[in-house]
């Protein structure tokens, strides 16, 4: 009964979200439509991080690297002339594929790197994976600087207006939205399947999972590959959304924002990170923007507020706002039912 109620409410809120998301561009000014569209792409990053961290229990601190690999893959596929005059000049002869193919290629290349790093580091248990992935962003950013002829160094480079996802913000918004829905749906089906069970078994107890007969290394790597693939897709979409690619888009602040969103939303719940990603990204880039002027008067800024929220959530609802609100919903109908019975 209660379970059904929660499910009903979940579907209801999903339906409302869908309608709101689809009609939003008609109410909002263009600049905000652009921002909400970016938020959808950010949600893909948060949910894909949740697959490896929340569901499989392997702490990945270098998720943005895979976002970045996807981004630079599609950018270089679209602008192969970047390779001219470098030691990789032979690559400049590759004809550019259509944008959609090149976005998928971004995911594939990202997944490939995820596979290599996963096979090496996930064979060991414990903190090795977290340590290696923590170092990855530093290596990645350095590489972009060292080979600045190709990657454009600190400033990055533009892929050109004609390679945008769509001509206007509204078009981009809808493409970002449907990419998000499709990606999240696929990830949802994966974690609901028997593969998802195996991920959760590994997270709960790796030794036990192994003694039940699960090839834990294989499934940890699989989880990492899936996570990296969608990170790459998100990164590639961002490039065609913003028309530029640059290292600042994939730096440590983004990683912190992903962690913040997933933890506040609720790790290992998939819906939590969607809500967390949505709220935190818009807070950071929109609702808390007014704080910037305020910081001259009071020693506070948007980052401080986000971390205060994290601390409050960690104390009051350690499992995240999704689980917390679900518990409240579960309690509600009982009260109503009891009242109905007594009267």
């Amino acid at each position: 009964m209660r379970l059904k109620m929660v499910k009903d409410i979940r579907y209801l809120s999903l339906g409302i979200l869908l309608i709101v998301s689809l009609t939003l561009p008609f109410f909002l000014p263009d600049a905000y439509v652009y921002l909400v569209g970016m938020t959808f792409l950010f949600i893909i990053m948060v949910v894909s991080w949740d697959i490896i961290v929340g569901y499989t229990g392997q702490v990945n601190l270098g998720h943005t690297v895979f976002v970045g690999i996807g981004a630079y893959t599609t950018a270089l596929l679209q602008v192969p002339s970047r390779f001219e005059g470098t030691f990789l000049h032979f690559l400049s002869a590759i004809p550019s594929p259509p944008i959609y193919i090149s976005i998928i290629m971004g995911g594939v290349v990202s997944a490939f790197f995820g596979f290599i790093i996963g096979v090496i580091t996930l064979r060991l248990r414990g903190y090795y994976f977290a340590l290696v992935t923590a170092v990855l962003p530093l290596v990645f950013i350095q590489l972009l600087y060292v080979w600045s002829d190709i990657f454009g160094g600190e400033e990055g480079f533009s892929v050109g207006l004609e390679r945008a996802l769509a001509v206007d913000s509204i078009g981009k918004y809808y493409i970002a939205f449907f990419t998000m829905v499709l990606s999240v749906l696929i990830m949802y089906l994966i974690v609901r399947s028997s593969i998802g069970y195996k991920f959760r078994a590994i997270r709960d107890d790796e030794t036990l999972a192994e003694s039940v007969g699960i090839d834990t290394v294989k499934y940890k790597v699989l989880s990492f590959v899936i996570s990296s693939f969608f990170a790459g897709i998100a990164g590639a979409c961002v490039v065609h959304y913003r028309i530029t690619v640059g290292p600042s888009m994939f730096d440590i602040p983004l990683m912190l924002l992903i962690i913040l969103s997933a933890v506040i939303g609720g790790l290992g719940t998939l819906f939590g990170p969607i809500i967390g990603g949505f709220v935190i990204y818009l807070m950071k880039n929109w609702w808390l923007k007014g704080m910037v002027g305020l910081s001259d008067v009071v020693p506070i800024n948007d980052e401080v507020i986000l971390y205060i929220i994290l601390i409050v959530v960690a104390i009051l609802a350690p499992e995240g706002i999704w689980v917390y609100s679900r518990k409240i919903i579960e309690k509600l109908p009982i009260k109503f039912l009891k009242k109905a019975k007594t009267t």
């Binding site: 069970y197 078994a201 709960d204 107890d205 036990l208 192994e210 003694s211 039940v212 699960i214 834990t216």
Partner: peptide, 24 residues
């Protein structure tokens, strides 16, 4: 052989301590 291949052959261990998947 690895642990999981042994499990496939039918050598099944019930480990000591917390021996269940608590979240399931």
């Amino acid at each position: 052989l690895s642990t999981y291949s042994k499990a496939e052959k039918g050598i099944i261990m019930v480990p000591e301590g917390r021996m269940i998947f608590p979240e399931m």
